[in-house]
């Protein structure tokens, strides 16, 4: 779901470029606080995986394809601020080197597939883990990734409607409809990869909020 140049009108792409730049600048500061040096090569590797996986369009219904985005996956692994930065870097390389996603639409893509994807995915993952007390982690990961794609597609629909391409109700129905299907693939990959790369903490903490925050930064 990479918005190309030409789909967004000037007021929309200028606004989203400014907002996207602000969000990335803020994430850089937040990520710096959460980042551990030993995570550096792992983040680089996961970013490369996201790029590779995004190349693989899988067929869905009606001569249409979808592909993985990855915001929820990276955010579950490293937190949403680092997740948003990884997604921004992927979108930047795709737009600059591969002409995939517009330059004028980069801010919009960063906001939708980057920030909406990461924060909706991470937020619903954390909520699900709390509600089910850590049980059913795989299903929670699947659902939160699915939800993040649907939310990101709704974001794109709003921007398209704001640009006057078509009205909001039609845009939302069309975009959300297709991405409810594409989200199934997103959920599968997120569930499998996070399941493979995560393990239970050997020492269970007492469950205080402070402890949770500390260990979340570590995780």
């Amino acid at each position: 779901m990479h918005i190309p140049d030409g789909f967004l009108d000037a007021k929309t792409w200028i606004t989203t470029t400014a907002a996207g730049a602000g969000a990335v600048a803020y994430s850089l500061r937040q990520a710096k606080l959460a980042l551990e040096p030993k995570r550096v090569p792992l983040i680089a590797l996961v970013g490369a995986f996201v790029f590779a996986a995004q190349m693989i369009n899988f067929p869905i219904a009606g001569a249409t394809s979808g592909h993985f985005l990855g915001g929820t996956m990276v955010s579950i692994l490293f937190g949403p601020w680092i997740g948003a930065l990884v997604m921004t870097a992927v979108l930047l390389v795709q737009a600059v080197v591969y002409q995939d996603g517009g330059i004028t639409a980069l801010g919009a893509n960063v906001l939708c597939t980057g920030f909406i994807g990461c924060f909706v995915g991470y937020g619903s993952y954390m909520l699900g883990m709390k509600l089910f007390r850590g049980k059913g982690r795989a299903i929670v990961a699947w659902m939160s990734a699915w939800l993040s794609i649907v939310a990101a597609s709704a974001g794109v629909a709003v921007l398209l409607a704001a640009s006057g391409t078509f009205n909001l109700a039609t845009a939302l129905t069309a975009m959300v409809g297709w991405h409810m299907l594409i989200g199934i693939g997103e959920g599968m990959i997120t569930m499998l990869v996070t399941g493979y790369l995560m393990e239970r903490n050997a020492v269970m903490t007492g469950g205080g909020f402070k402890n949770e925050r500390l260990s979340r930064n570590r995780a």
Binding site: M1, H2, M55, P59, S65, S153
Partner: peptide
């Protein structure tokens, strides 16, 4: 990667 589907993606379809 060479075997990825070349059908339009969700946004292109819309």
């Amino acid at each position: 990667s060479p075997w990825a589907s070349s059908h339009p993606d969700g946004l292109e379809r819309v």
